Simulated assay, not measured.
Amino acid sequence: MSLINTPIKPFKATAFHNGKFIDVSDADLKGKWSVVMFYPADFTFVCPTELEDLADHYEQFQKLGVEVYSVSTDTHFSHKAWHDTSPAIGKIKFPMIGDQNLSISTNFEILREGQGLADRGTFVIDPDGVIQLIEITSEGVGRSASELLRKVKAAQYIAAHPGEVCPAKWTEGEKTLAPSLDLVGKI
C-alpha cells in the first residue's frame, strides 16, 4: 500500500541542528510544508553529495515556507561529528535527525529489511501532516534538490488551486491543466 495521501505516524527523535541537539517529533512537521530526506548512512559517498546539494538549495526551500529534515539510522552524535569534519556536510543548516531505534524509517516504510539502514527516500509533507510526494531511489542513484524544489512548488500549487494539475516538466508560472471531459483525448 502506498503512503501517498496518508498522515505521518507519530515519532520522537533527537537531531543535530545549528550546533545543538534538539528534540524533533511528528508535531514539528505539521503546520508547514516539510521535506523529509532519508539516506543510508553518514560518512558515505553519494549521501554527502545529496545533502550538500540540499544545503545549497535550503534558502530556496525556506522562502517557500518549507522545512527540510534529513534522517539516517545513525545517531545525532554521528551527525554532529560528520557535520564538524566534512566541508560538504558542514554547509547544512537544517535538522539532521538520528533514527538509531529505526522507528522513523519504519513509520515511513523506508527501512531496509535486516540491514538497519534507510533507503534513499524523499517525502514531501503538507501542513496537515499528509504525505503528498514520495521518491525512492536505489543505493547508487543520487537525488537532485532542484528537481525536488520543482516538485514542492507543484505540490504547493495544486494544494492552493483545487481542480488544477501540473503536467510533466511544469515549472512555476507555466500553464496547468483543469481535468475535464473536454480534455479527454486532446492532450
Rank of each mutant, 00 (worst) to 15 (best):
D84Q: 05
T85E: 11
S86F: 02
P87W: 00
I89F: 01
I89S: 06
G90S: 10
I92D: 00
I92F: 01
I92L: 13
K93F: 00
K93C: 05
F94I: 01
P95S: 10
P95H: 12
I97D: 01
G98C: 14
G98N: 04
D99Y: 12
D99N: 11
Q100T: 10
Q100V: 15
Q100C: 13
N101M: 12
L102M: 12
S103Y: 05
I104A: 08
S105G: 15
N107R: 11
F108A: 13
F108Q: 08
E109M: 13
I110M: 12
I110P: 02
L111E: 10
R112V: 04
G114W: 06
G114T: 04
G114L: 08
Q115E: 14
Q115W: 07
G116R: 09
L117P: 06
L117S: 12
L117R: 15
A118P: 07
A118F: 03
D119L: 12
D119P: 01
R120D: 09
G121L: 08
G121W: 09
T122Y: 00
F123N: 05
F123G: 02
V124P: 03
V124A: 01
I125Q: 08
I125D: 10
D126W: 01
D126G: 05
D126K: 04
D126M: 06
P127I: 05
P127R: 03
P127Y: 03
D128T: 11
D128A: 14
G129K: 12
V130W: 01
V130R: 00
I131W: 03
Q132T: 11
Q132N: 06
I134M: 07
E135M: 02
I136F: 07
T137R: 01
S138Q: 08
S138M: 05
S138A: 03
